[in-house]
Design a protein around this nucleic acid. Structure first.
Lengths: 221, 221
DNA sequence: ACTTTTACCGATCGATCGTTAGAAAATTCT
DNA sequence: AGAATTTTCTAACGATCGATCGGTAAAAGT
């Protein structure tokens, strides 16, 4: 078994890492794609091994169980989307623009058949994955907290529940991979941006439908 | 094998039906509950038989395969929600009120752990269920067409895509069972109504946030 | 009462599931 | 080079999967 895994924060030797870490990453890449398409129970350990060109025994050298592979995919994809969302909103000031960029980054990560894996995951928190809820839920919550901050910055009308609004937007985005097919019609990012705009049109007191927009802060709030 | 199944439309003898049909309905009831909670691949034919107090061989007397049980559940739950939506909107005139009532009926059918089965289904149109897509997709489309009519009646601003709006609303509603738990906080129907109101606040040109509303038809459209 | 149909069950099929032990190959260390 | 270690393989384990067979109660038809 590889006894590395810990103290990856040492300042030295950050250039090339061991072969095992490369294999681990490759496994997670392919597993993410398969889990995203067919779900946890829909992918057998043999399917995954065959797609990787290795045997099932080799998989168990890198991971102790199928569930742990899924948990690793789950955490990795949530870290990735969190990073991409933060990059996407970095230069933007207007809170609605920030939410729109975040939604686009979110769907870019979850709607393609390549990536995803975390949104589909939500339904599989039961069954043999249930013991791993205590690991996966915090992974997911850290990301949802980021979105919650973006929603809080919107200064929504007081009769709109922030939590419900967030769940409504994330629900629509997470359902997108169910019906969206790449190539046909709008891209996933465009759809996500339109989703936010459908809300914005009425929920933002400073929103102007046509060209120019004015700064925030002069509202009656 | 029961050779009944056809000509169920005969005017005579609509009171009591054969024992097989009772068993069939019971099987679909329990299967719907299990499939809704754990998905198609998460429920084994033995799980289902045990929950019913019968053997797997008995199941195969009533249904030729596990997939056909799922397809039957899928069709039955879509017929049910379609019927309930039509009942819910029957007395309502205002198109936004109608959509709100439809959303409440939709979530009442899909958010509870008892019912559901159709929304979860969407992701499982691959794998061993793929050959049944040609049966299930029309089942689902008939229902979505009903919702599409309700959306068309809203007379949305011309810069809002009707299809995307419908998919946004249905996506948020279908994702609801992932996070919503009965008993805590708002009921599923209340959440669904709030979802529609979050849209309405801005998308309906005739909407007034406070008490009284005026009739439709005087808009600039 | 007796035959026929309906509804169910015990036992088991071959296939596939996740997982493991131990040997062989590839790589790294000295 | 040779030894030690890391990585992958062959082969198989028991468990469970969906499905099927022949037989047997229960009900219906006559």
């Amino acid at each position: 078994m590889p006894q590395r895994a810990k103290n990856a924060l040492t300042p030295q030797s950050d250039a090339k890492e061991t072969k095992a870490e490369t294999s681990r990453a490759k496994i997670l890449d392919v597993a993410q794609k398969l889990f995203a398409r067919r779900g946890f129970e829909g992918v057998s350990i043999r399917d995954l091994a065959q797609a990787l060109g290795m045997t099932t025994a080799s998989l168990y050298y890198h991971f102790p169980s199928k569930e742990e592979i899924f948990v690793a995919v789950h955490g990795r994809s949530l870290e990735a989307v969190q990073r991409e969302v933060m990059d996407a909103i970095a230069g933007l000031k207007d809170p609605w623009d920030r939410l729109e960029a975040a939604a686009a980054a979110h769907s870019r990560n979850f709607a393609s058949p390549e990536r995803s894996g975390a949104s589909i995951a939500a339904e599989y928190y039961e069954g043999s994955l249930a013991p791993f809820r205590k690991i996966m839920v915090p992974q997911r919550d850290a990301y949802e907290r980021l979105i919650a901050v973006l929603v809080a910055d919107l200064q929504l009308p007081k009769n709109v529940d922030e939590r419900l609004f967030r769940l409504q937007l994330l629900g629509a985005l997470n359902w997108l991979p169910v019906w969206h097919r790449q190539g046909r019609g709008h891209s996933a990012e465009e759809v996500a941006r339109q989703f936010v705009r459908n809300f914005r049109m009425g929920l933002d007191p400073d929103y102007k439908p046509a060209g120019d927009r004015k700064k925030k802060g002069a509202g009656k709030r």
